[in-house]
């Protein structure tokens, strides 16, 4: 099956993955993943631990070279035309260390200048982000000494700083306290309402159910289901769909009867 390249003037998919394959040694981590993420959607990538979510997203944003397949961001091939693809992309990679020997403000300034923004804009936006995310505009603590939740927040701030049109966030709500999580949800919802696209991975159903317009479920490196939340969920709860799709054990009620 061949997918025609997006035409000029047409509404371009925010992210378009075609037949992505990644193999680590002998293990097939991601197998033939193809996915269209419409612009302006709030997209949740679901999957159990080790399903290939992070691998897929890493290949999609140009951090991991796929063995086969293509990835387009806003119509630009990530691997053929990286500069154009990356310039309007913000990433919060999971499990990736930030440049954590910088302080929060320094890290934001670094990311802003790296993106070619002018210093005045960087300063203004960095202050605002630090303030909104309650990280403290004058905080001299090195990021390495931040708590896990603060680290997520500064990582998110770095991804947002250059006002990208597409945000790819790996596990953005993990280890974040409820108050900050609510703040982040609100920011992301407003961002999507303003025309941005958010793609994030998670294994927390409630968050996905509450936020997303579209979902995809991936397990064992294979894309099992994708579509709008309503289409995927149908009449059932997302959790039931997820357990069924992923093939988890269904409780019979007889095991561990001694409990």
């Amino acid at each position: 099956m061949t997918v025609p390249a997006p035409r000029e003037g047409e509404q371009v998919a925010a992210m378009s993955l075609r037949g992505l394959v990644k193999r680590f040694d002998t293990k097939l981590a991601v197998s033939q993943v193809g996915l269209e993420v419409p612009a302006g959607s709030f997209f949740g990538l679901l999957g159990p631990n080790g399903a290939g979510k992070t691998t897929t997203l890493s290949m999609a944003v140009g951090l991991l070279r796929p063995d086969a397949g293509q990835a387009f961001l806003l119509g630009h091939d990530v691997w053929a035309d990286p500069v154009a693809a990356k310039s309007r992309l913000g990433v919060l990679p999971d499990g990736v260390r930030l440049f954590d020997r910088l302080t929060g403000p320094e890290l934001l300034a670094y990311h802003g200048l790296l993106r070619g923004m002018d210093a005045a804009t960087v300063d203004q936006r960095a202050r605002e982000l630090l303030d909104v995310l309650e990280l403290g505009t004058g905080n001299r603590t090195l990021v390495v000494d931040y708590s896990a939740g603060m680290r997520k927040k500064i990582g998110l701030a770095c991804a947002l700083l250059h006002a990208p049109r597409l945000l790819v966030l790996d596990e953005p709500f993990e280890a974040v306290d409820p108050v900050s999580a609510a703040r982040i949800r609100e920011i992301l919802q407003r961002y999507v309402a303003g025309g941005g696209t958010v793609i994030f991975s998670s294994h927390v159903m409630e968050v996905v159910e509450r936020l997303c317009s579209h979902v995809a479920i991936i397990s064992d490196g294979v894309l099992r289901v994708h579509g709008t939340l309503a289409a995927v969920r149908g009449e059932r709860s997302l959790e039931d769909v997820f357990v069924q799709v992923v093939g988890g054990r269904v409780s019979t009620g007889s095991e561990l009867a001694w409990l």
């Binding site: 910088l102 302080t103 403000p105 320094e106 934001l108 300034a109 670094y110 802003g112 200048l113 790296l114 993106r115 070619g116 002018d118 210093a119 960087v122 300063d123 960095a126 202050r127 630090l130 403290g136 505009t137 004058g138 905080n139 001299r140 603590t141 090195l142 000494d145």
Partner: peptide, 28 residues
């Protein structure tokens, strides 16, 4: 250390000091 929040410079100023150019190269 987290309480050490005295006078605040601009984020780029904190990163670059006075001399380095306010560019990608300077930040790196």
């Amino acid at each position: 250390s987290s309480r050490a929040t005295g006078d605040v410079g601009s984020p780029t100023g904190l990163l670059l000091g006075r001399r380095l150019p306010r560019t990608r190269f300077g930040a790196l």
